[in-house]
Design a protein around this nucleic acid. Structure first.
Lengths: 346, 346
DNA sequence: GCCGTGACTGCAATCGATTGTACCCTGCCG
DNA sequence: CGGCAGGGTACAATCGATTGCAGTCACGGC
């Protein structure tokens, strides 16, 4: 049956006719902030009729008139990436009490898809946009779009960007990893680095390098141009073993857990034991990462927290406040497990 | 500056005034399906002016007039669950070419949140709703809501429900697990079961039980009332060891990988080796599950595929087709790794 | 030279909710 | 008893795009 165009769709006018008042009265009677303007018994009559007829306000029409849609745009790079879901989850938590709903779009780290996504969102008049897919060279595009609709950056930052940013402190994370390894006595390290145009990886790199430099340790850096996945970890580990065999580092810091897992697998296949021959630290503290062999030491990425804070900031902005509070850095910690140990001979 | 209310917001009328034509002409000139109705040079003029002025159609207004918003509602139980993200990713893939955007809402498996979510979506006049959070007793609510807006079920089914359903064949999955274990020679098995009001778990249970029964094997069933997490696996494994010590099964089938991992950890701590003392099969083939010790045998859950098919069906429905094709079952496979082996003495 | 035809374009209604303003009516004060 | 205050409603405009209908104009055929 599904009477779509058919006849369904109870409007204000229908309710009004049923009670015998004007639509404007119904509108007021059903709006908590205006309900005091209508007589108590009329209000009850209206509310009763509304419920009885199954009236459901059309927020599209409402949005057109008042200018606010009660929706927030959320732009992420890749939903399939386990790192993404917690952020959206956090955002979602922050939106729910405000009765806002998120529109979620993916960019696949592609500029034109980013632009298309933003275009969609602005066309649909979202009240605010949360971008969690920013790359450095997207800055102009984003700042430009922000002239039309309030916009914030989450999870992935752009240094010096004018938009408010809610980020995890990647630099701290990198430093924590370095401190841990240096503290164990490692002096030759390798870093498996993510793309250099994504803030998180740059932060991790900076924090790690700075701390290692300060301690006078030797660091090999292997970089991965694309979003790092398991296979990339494998590839880089093979590169490492093939090209640096003579001076194998005793510890590895990977910019995410997938890289770490990939490397771990290659090491195992090529007869290097972790942590005996090489210590490994990952990043994100992904679900289940404590169940691998050996349980992986990893820097916690507080995705839910990042999302929640970003969502809260977005809500404040959408409701008119423009906080000078133009950025939040969320701290983190290292979860030490069994993949890291002292090097065999200091 | 962010001139929001200020003055920004180029409308059809602005473009029309700039060119010196009527708004309706602009509307037609910019609509590919109507562009032939306007003279070529006017059209070019309009298109030029639109670009120059930075006109962006207001799809809220458009939606009000034509009745279609170009949005799809997506209702999931829990974004933080690693099982969820791939489904949304798949849906998103199907929506993109149709220029539709998803509104994603979470229910936390709570009835009132499900109702609230649907209410939000219908109020915002989504063109179609994809529910991936259905529990058996939500049937009435969902069928009722479907009288207002087309709706389909994805990932989680309800037997006998009138709505189209796009599901993974959980029964097959359960059967595959059973066949594998029986084939290895196991005759005493245990099943760690998920909640009985969620279709997936019922399907897995049915498939597993039926196959085991047919082979005359003995099966202990331990059930978990809530969404199964790691801790539940641990709890159930302890129950198993404490209460069935005399007749320990030699193989375990868990309804998801988290349950399996939890059990695995407990077994290890209590000195049972996998797969020597007990074989373990998980479900979902979660990311990284092949890196644990031992790499876990698991039934693949094709989440992206499920999402994609659901999205495609939803698109067809949103565009007016009402396919008798009232259901899709997506097949799957078992990924055999090293957590399953022959029992020690047959 | 008249009228028909067809190609463009303008007019105005419409989608449904919201809201400023105008209006009515009751009750009270002077 | 006139008038004023103010509570309670109705009216109508508005948000921006879409679209059926009507009107204009040019051209061609008879």
């Amino acid at each position: 049956m599904t009477a779509r165009r058919g006849g369904k769709g109870v409007t204000l006018k229908d309710v009004a006719a049923h009670v015998g008042v004007n639509a404007s009265t119904v509108s007021r009677a059903l709006d908590a902030r205006k309900a005091h303007l209508v007589q108590v018994d009329t209000r009850l009559l209206v509310q009763g009729a509304a419920k009885q007829l199954g009236y459901r306000p059309d927020r599209v029409a409402g949005a057109l008139r008042r200018g606010a849609t009660g929706t927030a745009g959320v732009v992420v790079a890749d939903l399939a990436n386990p790192f993404t879901a917690p952020v959206i989850h956090g955002i979602s938590q922050a939106l729910r009490p405000m009765q806002m709903v998120p529109m979620v779009l993916e960019t696949n780290d592609d500029r034109s898809q980013l632009e298309a996504s933003i275009d969609h969102l602005l066309s649909r008049r979202v009240d605010v946009v949360i971008v969690a897919a920013a790359r450095f060279d997207d800055r102009a595009v984003l700042e430009d779009a922000a002239r039309h609709t309030p916009m914030i950056l989450a999870a992935r930052g752009i240094p010096g960007c004018a938009l408010p940013q809610v980020l995890h402190d990647d630099q701290l994370g990198g430093a924590l990893a370095a401190q841990h390894l240096l503290g164990l006595g490692h002096t030759r390290l390798v870093e498996l680095r993510g793309p250099a145009d994504i803030g998180n990886f740059v932060g991790r790199h900076t924090g790690f390098q700075r701390t290692c430099k300060a301690a006078g340790a030797e660091v090999i850096v292997l970089e991965n141009a694309l979003r790092p996945r398991l296979e990339d970890g494998e590839r880089l580990a093979n590169v490492l073993l093939d090209e640096h065999a003579g001076r194998m580092p005793t510890a590895l810091f990977a910019h995410n857990d997938l890289l770490a897992l990939g490397a771990l697998g290659v090491f195992r296949r090529r007869k290097l034991q972790c942590p005996r021959d090489v210590s490994i630290i990952g990043y994100n503290d992904s679900l289940g990462i404590d169940q691998v062999d050996p349980p992986l030491t990893s820097v916690v990425y507080p995705g839910v927290e990042v999302g929640r804070r970003a969502g809260e900031l977005a809500m404040r902005i959408a409701h008119g406040q423009r906080p000078a509070d133009s950025g939040v850095l969320i701290t983190s910690e290292l979860r030490i497990r069994r993949s890291t140990a002292r090097p065999r001979r200091a």
